[in-house]
Design a protein around this nucleic acid. Sequence first.
DNA 1: CTTGATGCAAATGGTTTGCATGTTT
DNA 2: AAACATGCAAACCATTTGCATCAAG
Lengths: 144, 144
Amino acid sequence: MSATGITLEDLVAELRDRGQRATTARRAVLAEILAAGDTHLSAEDLARRIQRQHPAIHLSTVYRTLDALTEAGLIAVARFRDQPVTYHLAVDVHHHALCTNCGATINLPPGALDPLRRRLRRDHGFRADPRHLTIPGVCERCAR
Amino acid sequence: MSATGITLEDLVAELRDRGQRATTARRAVLAEILAAGDTHLSAEDLARRIQRQHPAIHLSTVYRTLDALTEAGLIAVARFRDQPVTYHLAVDVHHHALCTNCGATINLPPGALDPLRRRLRRDHGFRADPRHLTIPGVCERCAR
DNA sequence: CTTGATGCAAATGGTTTGCATGTTT
DNA sequence: AAACATGCAAACCATTTGCATCAAG
């Protein structure tokens, strides 16, 4: 499901296109997020992993980098419950279902929420913007 | 839309039924949440309001009370973005849409997400539990 | 060389906790 | 009286920020 053929260089190029600098820290963050596939990582997760290779890269830099990458549209944010915020590649992934038991993530196709959006619009005049919506529940394996 | 005929005494009775004590602080919190109707209040919002009548009730007590009431199923939690967590009556309100512009809340009928749940179940074996889901977007008035 | 990114340490802000005391049952 | 809730101050923890230094364009 995460077999997008995206490479680190694609992401770096994209970053440059948005007028952002491609620094060591940013490459490292992108590389780890790319390597993580569907797994969602917190800022601290990322810092720990990155520091195996680049001990000098500071947690605060990771936070600032994550902000920059989010702003650039390369990565997206997901929150759930009390857990710290997590990040993942934004490439055409729009909604998630998150297993509250094992933490597994299911990426939903971009249109999955369209019927709901239409209904909200029609019945309540409400323009839903569910780009970063995470739906809690229990995944197939955990359901037994 | 918040014209549920629920009274403070209903809530207090419910609380007692769950084996919890009906203290001044808990009554005060329930009263404010009830008075707030569809508005979502943070712990600090509630503390400020409560302290107008009961200056001695401490913010930490409000937090502990909110935990207790949530545990008892009387109130429910909603999160959005970076904002602090907010609380509202749990009585048969299951999903929300929240205007990111003005903060207005739209309560969706309990079945509003059923089609989505069915699809997730059928296509991914995923049992969604969207009890506390809050859908961001822009409400009718703010859309112009 | 100029602008923006980084490391570090310190600050922030929402939330939680330990403990002695007060209140509910 | 026993069990539990509360007030207060202090701790926590994820995240942010100020500032001097460093690296990318």
